[in-house]
Amino acid sequence: MGKGAWMMYSADVSTAGVIKKQISYKWRAYISVFTSLVVIQLLGVLFSLNGTGMSSSGGRSYNIQVEYYNADIIMIFTIFWGFITALLLTTKAYREDDFAFVTNRMSGTLSTILYLWIISSIAGFTASLSGYLLKVVVFLFTSQEILNSTGAGGAGVYLMGLVSLILTIFMFAGFGYAVGMIVQWNKMFVILLPVLVIGLLFSLEKAGYSLDQFFFQFLFSEQSFWLFLIKSTAVSAAAYLSAFLISNRLEVKQ
């Protein structure tokens, strides 16, 4: 008894070690994000079954009807999921979960960002798989001949598509994270933010620019994969950095 030599204090605490523990903790604690992912992607498959386009041509004795099915809706849903999930992680309950155990702001934010990267990758991968699921479903239930029109195929193209998708989900998660932090910082922004965004769009429209040009065209009509990679990474970095800076102004627990 009375162990004088017992050292309770440890000066040997590494940020990287704590971040690693935080990521695995968040993986277990926020397991429900995958439930919503599955639900939203199945919903995407369901909506996609409507077909996005149709063309028919006919002659005297034949009639060709072509229906286009694509996985755009699944991808859009998944991107939206990334945005909402990240937004939710900034709410008080989740932030307090963050601080339930050993952490500081930097390790808390960095581990969340890495966590978002991991779940974005998983979501991107399952979204691309649900594209295949869609094909199977169409094949089984519509008894139509399937014509693949992915164009120049191959593993390289698939991979580039997958990476682009993941980067896009991660970028939108970054938007969600930043927006969430802004709102947490000052609740006024719940109203202010939509007003600002719509106002900005409106004034841009008025000045003769469209949203396309300013945002979507900048990113998504990029034909070069590498340029897209650089651009989306830069935009993501800006979003996450601003979220981090704002989180630094928030008191840890109130």
């Binding site: 440890s10 704590v18 307090e96 050993v102 952490t103 930097m106």
Partner: peptide
């Protein structure tokens, strides 16, 4: 905001939050 202090201290009160999934 100090990781060293966080790792070597704990604050227990009646309003602690833990993830509801655990």
């Amino acid at each position: 905001n100090n990781l060293q202090v966080s790792a070597n201290s704990i604050y227990i009160d009646d309003q602690m939050n833990f993830p509801t999934s655990l």
